[in-house]
């Protein structure tokens, strides 16, 4: 199927691109356009062209990974378009086709699956104190380091229920609930997407000579995180 038609099969594409008049208001408000080489107006224009070659290029580029998903463009677009939503559709297709490994920023998806995907399924929430390791998060500063090093006492002081059974802040999520989430991921393509990202990434790491004989690809992952 032509890439444009594949994009169109996602309801978010219908919601996000009614018709773009190329005014550039989205670019004017876009924080990503300010700090990165990124222009949502151009992106909308390329898609609207329905040109397969250009869309494929886009899916293989860093461009689509620059958006910060703030959705400021949605508020301002005079046509009610939402480039941020279109980005989600493009990223989805880029991952399904394996195109994401063709760009440096696209390859970062592997590191995100390993961090956030794993935490979500293991702890039931996307973030958990033990994953915000100060060495990897120097920006969190000395107060966070103090919290991190004294997790039990600090969270206890603040009435949390860290890693314990029952209700409350940062509690341990019961196995039956984690099993329901996992079953939903299996049923709805969530698990499959993790595997797709992993498989294409492994292939890429191998191609880049960054996979060890034991199948480990720590250097590849490190490189993704640190740029």
């Amino acid at each position: 199927m032509e890439l444009y038609n594949q994009l169109k099969s996602d309801v978010r594409f219908i919601e996000g691109l009614k018709s773009c008049m190329n005014c550039g208001v989205c670019t004017a408000i876009c924080p990503a356009a300010e700090f990165f080489d990124y222009d949502p107006r151009v992106l909308m224009s390329v898609i609207q062209s329905k040109d397969n070659t250009q869309i494929e290029e886009l899916l293989k580029s860093d461009t689509i990974w620059n958006c910060g998903q703030c959705m400021s463009c949605k508020t301002r677009c005079p046509r009610g378009n939402c480039p941020g939503l279109i980005i989600s559709v493009l990223r989805k297709l880029s991952q399904e086709m394996g195109y994401f490994t063709e760009s440096k920023k696209g390859r970062q998806q592997y590191a995100i699956v390993k961090a956030i995907g794993k935490t979500m399924l293991e702890h039931g929430y996307c973030v958990y104190p033990e994953i915000v390791v100060p060495a990897a998060h120097p920006e969190q500063g000395p107060v966070w380091e103090w919290v991190f090093n004294n997790k039990e006492a600090v969270y206890d002081r603040l009435g949390a229920n860290l890693a314990m059974e029952g209700a409350g802040t940062l509690r341990k999520i019961a196995t039956k609930n984690l099993a329901e989430i996992k079953a939903i991921f299996d049923q709805t393509g969530g698990t499959e997407l993790f595997e797709t990202i992993e498989n294409f990434s492994r292939k890429k790491a191998k191609g880049m000579g960054m996979m060890k004989e034991d199948g480990k690809m720590d250097n590849y992952t490190e490189g993704l995180m640190n740029g």
Partner: peptide, 21 residues
């Protein structure tokens, strides 16, 4: 509710979680 979990929002907006999920 102790049965509540993440809505997957961070995963969704980092595009590692499909919309259907």
């Amino acid at each position: 509710d102790q049965n509540h979990t993440s809505c997957t929002g961070i995963g969704y907006h980092t595009d590692i979680v499909p919309f259907e999920t």
